[in-house]
Simulated scan of single mutants.
Amino acid sequence: MTIAVPSDVRVWLAGGVTDMRRGMNGLTLQIQQGLGRDPHAGDLFVFRGRRGNLLKILWHDGVGLSLYAKRLEQGRFIWPSPADGAVAISAAQLGYLLDGIDWRNPRHTWRPSRAG
């Protein structure tokens, strides 16, 4: 399943590690106090766990707050360091991230060598 995120939505990666036991209320507090942002402004906030294979996404779509989770069966999500703080990425980069692709430098793995 894919989250239908409008292309103009701001996406924030919370740098560092987040306690994945946190639910909607705990993550909302982290957005307000730790990131200094409004969790109800329509931005999408992404958090990564210690092992690096689990993400949680918090998003207020104007109607209500949603909490999504994704776990990779193999590999780890590429993540900014804690020193970077919250990093803004595009909705397209979020798509790469959710597929386990390096969102900082996505590349095609195969290109045709000739046409026809």
Results as ranks from 00 to 15, higher is better:
residue 20 M to Q: 01
residue 85 G to N: 05
residue 86 A to C: 11
residue 96 Y to M: 04
residue 26 G to H: 11
residue 33 Q to S: 14
residue 28 T to M: 11
residue 28 T to Q: 10
residue 10 R to H: 12
residue 96 Y to D: 08
residue 7 S to Q: 14
residue 25 N to L: 12
residue 3 I to D: 02
residue 27 L to R: 04
residue 39 P to S: 05
residue 63 V to K: 13
residue 38 D to I: 10
residue 26 G to M: 04
residue 27 L to W: 00
residue 9 V to E: 06
residue 11 V to F: 02
residue 59 W to V: 06
residue 65 L to T: 09
residue 1 M to Y: 03
residue 36 G to D: 03
residue 54 L to T: 01
residue 64 G to I: 11
residue 59 W to K: 11
residue 7 S to F: 11
residue 57 I to A: 10
residue 73 E to T: 08
residue 24 M to L: 15
residue 38 D to R: 04
residue 47 F to G: 04
residue 93 Q to C: 12
residue 20 M to I: 09
residue 113 S to H: 09
residue 94 L to C: 05
residue 113 S to K: 13
residue 113 S to A: 15
residue 32 Q to R: 15
residue 49 G to K: 05
residue 60 H to R: 02
residue 17 V to Q: 13
residue 31 I to W: 09
residue 73 E to A: 15
residue 42 G to H: 05
residue 40 H to R: 08
residue 51 R to L: 10
residue 71 R to V: 00
residue 73 E to D: 15
residue 37 R to V: 05
residue 49 G to H: 06
residue 79 W to H: 11
residue 13 L to S: 05
residue 6 P to G: 03
residue 103 W to S: 01
residue 12 W to C: 09
residue 9 V to Q: 04
residue 9 V to H: 10
residue 68 Y to G: 04
residue 36 G to C: 00
residue 11 V to L: 04
residue 104 R to M: 13
residue 72 L to S: 07
residue 53 N to E: 09
residue 107 R to H: 14
residue 101 I to F: 04
residue 83 A to V: 08
residue 86 A to H: 13
residue 25 N to P: 04
residue 114 R to W: 04
residue 21 R to S: 07
residue 115 A to S: 14
residue 52 G to V: 00
residue 75 G to F: 10
residue 23 G to I: 02
residue 104 R to V: 07
residue 50 R to E: 12
residue 11 V to Q: 02
residue 61 D to G: 07
residue 96 Y to P: 01
residue 31 I to S: 11
residue 55 L to W: 12
residue 37 R to E: 10
residue 19 D to E: 12
residue 27 L to P: 00
residue 63 V to R: 15
residue 37 R to A: 05
residue 10 R to T: 12
residue 53 N to C: 01
residue 46 V to G: 03
residue 11 V to C: 14
residue 36 G to F: 03
residue 62 G to I: 12
residue 32 Q to I: 14
residue 78 I to L: 10
residue 77 F to H: 00
residue 78 I to V: 15
residue 22 R to H: 15
residue 74 Q to D: 15
residue 19 D to P: 07
residue 35 L to E: 09
residue 57 I to Q: 06
residue 73 E to K: 14
residue 101 I to H: 14
residue 76 R to G: 02
residue 116 G to H: 01
residue 38 D to Q: 11
residue 42 G to N: 00
residue 55 L to A: 09
residue 71 R to S: 07
residue 11 V to R: 05
